[in-house]
Each structure stands twice: as C-alpha cells, then as structure tokens.
C-alpha cells in the first residue's frame, strides 16, 4: 500500500508540474502579478481580476485541487502500514472533500464578484475572502482531529510503543 501511496503522490506532483508549465507558457497578461498603486508609493494594486484569470483560471483551479489531494496523500504516507484501512481512507477522503468545498466556495465566490461587482461580508471580510481567511484555516482541522483523536488508532498505538521500546532495548542509543 505504501508504494501505491507514493506512486499516487508522484503522479500528483507530475500533474502539478505540467500545470505549472502550462501556466508559464500561457498568454501573459499585463499586471498579472500586481502593479504599483497609482497614487500611494509602496502599495500595490491588483487591477482587472477577470483579465488575470482569463488565461489561467482553470489551470490554477485544478492546481489547487491537486495540491489539496497531495496533502491528504502525504498524510496517508505518514501513517504506518499497519494502521491503514477503510476507516482511515474514509476519514482522509472526507477531509479532502471538506477542503475542496472551501476552495470551491472561495474560487467561485470570487468569480461571482467579478461578474456582478457585488459582495456580502462575513466577520469583516468580503464573502470570498472570508472563505479564504477563515475557511482555509478551518479546512485542515479534520486532519488535526484525525491526528489528535485518532492518535492511538492511527499514529502511535500502545503496541507501537511496545515495539519501539523493544527496539531501543535491542539496539540501544548508538
């Protein structure tokens, strides 16, 4: 199973590299990385958001979907072979869906603003930004909970501790 996970990680990384290449080769847009503020020195402006996304929006969206997938794949790699199983995969998959939902809300919330010029606010920020600001932070909480609440089940069980202590006795500290 560990080999399957690493092949999965490798495939995701290659796909991300290909997307990066596609973005680099895409038609350049003036000011895509920001431009100086017209009146205030030291401050940057973003300019036309729709134009900045026109050539690469979908590539970037897919890039982030793959990055979120890479994160749960790496978390799976960090769990020892003997603790892999349906329960772990289900939890990691749900965790992925949760982050994907947040990313979806953020991306399409921003597109909606670009189309309509209107936005609501949530806890001080425009809605799309609130998904980024609060949502991204919360997005990894399921992973944190899997680690904390599932510590004895997935990360370091009592049996693992016994094996480790036996290993220390057998080889000692070199």
């Amino acid at each position: 199973m560990q080999n399957r996970v690493i092949i999965g990680i490798f495939t995701i990384c290659c796909a991300m590299a290909a997307l990066l290449l596609a973005i680099i080769l895409a038609e350049p847009v003036a000011g895509s990385g920001g431009m100086p503020h017209p009146t205030i020195p030291g401050m940057m402006n973003g300019g036309d958001g729709a134009a900045r996304l026109a050539e690469i929006g979908w590539f970037a969206f897919l890039f982030q979907c793959l990055l979120l997938l890479l994160i749960v794949a790496l978390a799976a790699l960090g769990v020892a072979q003997q603790h892999h199983g349906l329960k772990l995969y289900t939890l990691l998959f749900l965790s992925y869906l949760f982050t994907l939902f947040i990313w979806w809300q953020m991306y399409f919330g921003h597109l909606h603003f670009l189309e309509t010029g209107e936005t609501g606010y949530f806890l001080g920020f425009p809605v799309a930004t609130a998904w980024q600001m609060y949502g991204t932070w919360i997005g990894a909480i399921p992973l944190v909970l899997i680690y904390v609440l599932g510590f004895k089940t997935f990360i370091h069980s009592d049996e693992d501790e016994q094996v480790y202590q036996a290993l220390l006795k057998q080889y000692g500290a070199k």
């Binding site: 920001g34 958001g49 900045r52």
Partner: peptide, 9 residues
C-alpha cells in the same frame, strides 16, 4: 479579494 494584488498563482 482572495488572491490579493499578486494574483492567484
């Protein structure tokens, strides 16, 4: 907005 002045990438 979510990507700031420097853009999405």
């Amino acid at each position: 907005m979510p990507y700031g002045t420097m853009g999405i990438m």
